[in-house]
Amino acid sequence: MLSIDKYAYSNRWAEWSPLTKAGIWLGLMILAFQPLLWLKFSMLVCVAIITVRITQVSWRQYVKWFYAILPFLFLSILGIVFTVSQQKQDLLIACHLGQTYFGLSKTMLPVGAKIGIQAFSAIIGTYWFALSTPFTQIISLLHRLHLPDNLIEITMLMYRFIFIFIESCEQIYHAQKLRFGYDTIGLTLHSSGILAQMLFQQVIVNYRKMELALAAKLYDGEFRIS
């Protein structure tokens, strides 16, 4: 499920210093936000190619990661360019309702396009960062940013525990599905409720077992992070 995490550990730049990578990410963001369209565009293409090369992810899988966010991007841009006007000449593809016209705003279309390209290049930059930086390096980055220890410790533990929960989540989900628990919308809601409740029980079960392990490892209230 968390395939990005796997690539982050196995890519060719995994060993690079996290500070360097954070610096490059910042640079990429600046490139994405600067005004020159051609520069955004060439950065987008270069970084995408680099990402695929260093992670050796298939292009198909790489494109798949965009599926989830494309509708949102599309809707947002639609929200930017769609408008109402009294004058037909302001609009592209205008249709009228009484005296007002609906359609795509001529002045906003370039803005929408610019935002689209900008968002795309920024996303590609962040994907590069996510795909090339193991999460343990992110933790050490947070440490260097001098964020509070409690926050970093909880982040680190959460990262470890997520994998435990995802595994049981998948197992429960499969078992429910194979017993027809997701066949209708009503059943889906009901089964999801049971799934969430069972996961919540695991919070308690895991906690009890971890308490014992912490005692055995002489835990004194602090998870040291180097």
């Binding site: 999460f135 343990t136 680190m156 533990l157 990262y159 470890r160 435990i164 895991n206 077992k209 971890m210 014992l212 392990a213 912490l214 055995a216 490892k217 998870f223």
Partner: peptide, 16 residues
């Protein structure tokens, strides 16, 4: 006296 429990996942706290 050190003890190792049955379930490994619940006694590993760091990611590395």
């Amino acid at each position: 006296i050190g003890i190792v429990f049955q379930d490994s996942d619940q006694q590993l706290f760091y990611s590395i």
